Computed example of a mutant assay.
Amino acid sequence: MKKTLVLQSDFGLVDGAISAMEGVAFGVDETLRIRNLTHDITPYNIFEASYRLFQTVEYWSEGTVFVSVVDPGVGSSRKSVVALTNAGHYIVTPDNGTLTHIKKYMGIKAIREISEVSNRRANTEASYTFHGRDVYAFTGARLAAGIITFEDVGPELSVERIVELPVTATEVTSDSVKGSIDILDVRFGSLWTSIEREEFLSINPAYGERLEVTIYNNDMLVYQNQVIYGKSFADVRIGSPIIYINSVYRVGIAINQGSFSKAYNIGVGAQWSVEIKKA
Rank of each mutant, 00 (worst) to 15 (best):
F150W: 02
S158G: 11
R133T: 07
L201G: 01
T85M: 12
V82K: 03
R112N: 03
T100Q: 05
H101D: 12
E125P: 01
E125Q: 10
I195R: 02
R161H: 09
K109D: 13
T193A: 04
P166Q: 05
Y128M: 11
E156G: 04
V159P: 15
A206W: 03
K79T: 04
T173M: 05
T173E: 04
E199R: 00
R161D: 15
S115W: 00
F130R: 01
E151W: 10
D185W: 05
A83V: 09
E199K: 00
S180K: 00
R133I: 06
N119K: 02
T173D: 01
L184G: 02
D185S: 12
T93R: 06
F188T: 08
T93E: 06
V172T: 03
D95A: 14
K109Q: 13
M106W: 09
E198L: 12
S180F: 02
R142Y: 07
N86C: 14
N123W: 06
K104P: 10
D134G: 05
H131K: 02
T100H: 07
E113S: 13
E160I: 01
D134K: 06
L191V: 05
L143A: 11
S174Y: 08
S190Q: 14
A169R: 12
V177R: 01
Y105L: 14
V163S: 13
Y136T: 06
F188Y: 15
S118T: 12
V117L: 13
I114H: 11
D134V: 11
S118A: 06
T85S: 13
S194L: 01
G189A: 01
S115K: 02
I114S: 06
T98N: 11
V186I: 14
L157A: 07
D152G: 03
V82F: 04
N86F: 02
S80P: 11
F188R: 15
K79R: 15
E199T: 02
R197C: 00
G107Q: 07
A141V: 03
V92F: 10
G146Y: 05
E199I: 00
E171F: 08
E198F: 04
H131I: 08
T85Q: 08
G107V: 09
T98P: 09
I102H: 08
G189R: 13
Y90W: 07
L191P: 13
I195W: 01
R142H: 14
K178R: 14
G132Q: 04
E156I: 10
G179A: 08
T100G: 12
T85W: 07
Y105S: 10
T168C: 14
G107M: 04
F200K: 00
L165D: 09
Y207A: 01
I108F: 04
T168K: 14
S202F: 00
F150Y: 05
I203G: 02
G97W: 11
Y128H: 13
A110Y: 02
G179W: 00
D95P: 10
E156M: 12
T124W: 02
D182E: 15
T139S: 06
